[in-house]
């Protein structure tokens, strides 16, 4: 009863083995390709120039402060470079925050692909790490600086924008002045013309007055 016909079962087993093998191969290849694709995903942001500058300057700092031959990068310059990096990070943070809402709703509706969402999430986690890194570096460069570096960066950003805004409006002064000077001239000449015309029309008025009685007479005649 329990006599199994192993030879007869060989074929189904072979079938299962081939099927399993094919699925496993497909799965590994698919996953590898997917991983490769997400690794090659375009980064959300372009090159972070101020970060590159900061790190380059940091590498240019002499390892031994007493070393006379080393390039003398003032440490104040490195600190200023870190502040510039914090400013750029804040701008990116604002961009990411405003993009998040739009991105997730677009993804839910299926208007954008999974790629975009993956790029976005990677950018977000990198941003987090970048901010922490800036705070760490700030604390290393000046005691307790990490607590206030982003506050200062934010004020610099706001002040720069405000100055741009002011300049944009104030730059119109010259053209506005020129326009008004021209317009004033026009108004002046128009006024003179009007005065001339009113003199002329005072003579034509009489002519009209002469006409009217005739018209009236005609009307009266018709009646």
């Amino acid at each position: 009863m329990f006599d199994v016909d192993w030879k007869g079962l060989a074929l189904p087993f072979a079938y299962l083995a081939v099927l399993g093998g094919a699925l496993a191969t497909f799965s590994t290849i698919y996953r590898k390709r997917k991983a490769a694709r997400s690794a090659n995903l375009e980064p959300w942001f372009g090159p972070h120039v101020s970060r590159d500058i900061y790190l380059t300057l940091l590498h240019m700092l002499p390892e031994d402060p007493k070393d006379e031959k080393a390039t003398k990068i003032p440490v104040t310059m490195v600190r200023a470079a870190l502040l510039r990096r914090a400013i750029e990070d804040l701008q990116r943070l604002v961009q990411i925050r405003s993009a998040k809402q739009a991105c997730s709703s677009l993804l839910q509706r299926g208007s954008v692909g999974d790629d975009l969402w993956q790029r976005f999430q990677r950018a977000e986690s990198e941003m987090q790490a970048e901010l922490q890194d800036v705070v760490r570096e700030a604390n290393a460069l000046s005691p307790q600086w990490g607590q206030i570096i982003f506050q200062s960066a934010n004020e610099i950003l706001l002040n720069d924008r405000m100055k741009e805004q002011i300049d944009e409006i104030q730059d119109t002064v010259e053209s506005e002045k020129a326009w008004w000077a021209k317009r004033k001239e026009e108004i002046g000449s128009e006024l003179i013309k009007e005065l001339d015309e009113s003199e002329k029309s005072s003579t034509t008025d009489e002519a009209v007055l002469v006409d009217t009685p005739e018209k009236k007479k005609k009307v009266a005649a018709k009646a």
Partner: peptide, 26 residues
């Protein structure tokens, strides 16, 4: 240019700058 400008302001200003030449708390 922006960096050099900021650096210049930080090392030449006395207003709200810490001795380490970084902006103090706003």
């Amino acid at each position: 240019d922006a960096l050099n400008d900021l650096h210049h302001k930080l090392i030449s200003s006395e207003e709200g700058v810490l001795p380490t030449r970084v902006p103090g708390p706003p």
